[in-house]
């Protein structure tokens, strides 16, 4: 059983980032691996994170991008969420933080001219080359790793669907025996087409 924990998915889904949990679960389903998803409210994130640090295997944490209004709605918990999420990354918990939550975790950045376009970027830390849509006005790396398995990125939307190599790397990190199947072959062909296009 792979367990997903997602912070305020109703608020942190401005560009469809929650689809990444959906995509990983679908790929697990195609492999015959069960999964569950737990919604985490901002005020509970710190407590949930402590439990995950104690038992990180097979756990994935999702922090999507939210509007200014959405981020403002839990600003009082931002410090505790940042601290807890960094603890999760250090403990080897798998995860993904996108856009505004990436900024929250890595606040030492500068504002630059906005980029809003597709990108196919080399990633560091052993991550595969990543394709997706970048929309940012920060100088933060487009995609990077915190710890061993916690991805932070400015590539928003369904990055795991568009870069299935990244999805499978995340699943491998969750202890899943990753293999191809008819469904993933078909999906990955469409992803390849989107990338080529």
């Amino acid at each position: 059983m792979i367990e997903f924990f997602t912070l305020a998915s109703d608020r942190l889904n401005l560009n469809g980032d929650q689809a990444n949990v959906f995509v990983l679960r679908k790929r697990l389903d195609w492999l015959g691996v069960a999964s569950s998803v737990t919604e985490v409210a901002p005020e509970n994130f710190e407590a949930v994170a402590k439990e995950l640090v104690a038992s990180p295997e097979g756990k994935f944490v999702m922090l999507g991008h939210g509007s200014k209004a959405a981020m403002g709605s839990f600003a009082e918990y931002a410090d505790s969420i940042r601290s807890a999420a960094l603890d999760l990354a250090s403990a080897g918990v798998s995860g993904l933080a996108v856009g505004s939550c990436y900024e929250m975790l890595c606040p030492d950045f500068k504002r630059i001219e906005r980029v809003s376009d597709y990108a196919d970027v080399e990633a560091n830390g052993g991550l595969p080359r990543t394709f997706g849509y970048v929309n940012t006005d920060t100088n933060l790396p487009v995609i990077s790793l915190l710890g061993e398995r916690f991805v932070v990125t400015m590539v928003h939307g369904p990055v795991f669907a568009r870069t299935p190599e990244l999805a499978d790397q995340m699943l491998f990190g969750l202890g899943v025996s990753v293999g191809t199947n008819a469904n993933s072959v078909e999906a990955d062909l469409y992803a390849e087409g989107a990338r080529a296009h």
Binding site: Y190, G193, A196
Partner: peptide, 13 residues
């Protein structure tokens, strides 16, 4: 459409 692959990817998942 010009985004046919992206649309197919979405529908497949």
């Amino acid at each position: 459409g010009l985004q046919a692959d992206q649309a197919a990817l979405l529908l497949k998942y």
